[in-house]
């Protein structure tokens, strides 16, 4: 066979280059798996307008006006049917004991179930609004239960915590609340 060189030499290295690029990208994501949690894009922005009816007889409902009252609040999105939410109970109690006002939004819940939930796992909430179609959840950019938002006195979201608050995270959340109060 006659060895006639084909056109461009760089083109012959192109497949190898593309392949190296591929390996680099997947290697990166294998070694340093990205956090796949969907974060809210609402951090640093004011809460949307909402008014929620009381979720149970235990405490009043929740509206935006209740949150923009000059004080910092911890807005906890939870449900009685969600197992991690029950696990989170003592941590919310601890935060409340440190003077943090914890308010709740109950997702797709029933008053009876909530009453049973509070009886079993305690009730750290000063207010709980009922969100039966996850509308406020979407408006906040929240993608599951439980999630917690630190909201400052002007009603601006300062921090989002995805998943249940673990015992060793209570200090961190309290610090976020203190920071939002400054």
């Amino acid at each position: 066979m006659t060895a006639v060189p084909t056109g461009s030499r760089w083109a012959l290295w192109l497949p190898l280059g593309l392949f190296a690029g591929f390996v680099a990208v997947v290697l990166f994501s294998l070694l340093k798996p990205a956090d796949r949690a969907v974060k809210s894009a609402m951090i640093g922005r004011p809460l949307p307008q909402f008014t929620l009816a009381a979720a149970s007889a235990a405490q009043p409902g929740l509206a935006r006006a209740d949150l923009a009252d000059g004080k910092v609040h911890l807005l906890n999105i939870f449900a009685s049917w969600c197992v991690p939410c029950a696990v989170e109970g003592p941590q919310l109690q601890a935060l409340r004991a440190r003077g943090v006002d914890v308010v709740g939004v109950a997702i797709r819940d029933k008053p009876d179930d909530l009453a049973r939930f509070f009886a079993q796992h305690g009730n750290p909430f000063s207010r709980v609004g009922a969100d039966n179609v996850s509308a406020i959840q979407f408006a906040l950019g929240s993608s599951g239960v439980p999630e917690s938002f630190v909201v400052d006195g002007r009603g601006v979201i300062r921090y989002q915590h995805i998943g249940d608050i673990r015992a060793d995270q209570v200090d961190m959340i309290a610090a976020k609340v203190a920071e939002a109060g400054r």
Binding site: M1, T2, A3, V4, P5, T6, R9, L12, W13, P15, L16
Partner: peptide, 10 residues
């Protein structure tokens, strides 16, 4: 491929 294909005519 990159090393050899240059010697393979089209």
């Amino acid at each position: 491929f990159a090393l050899r294909a240059g010697t393979v005519s089209e």
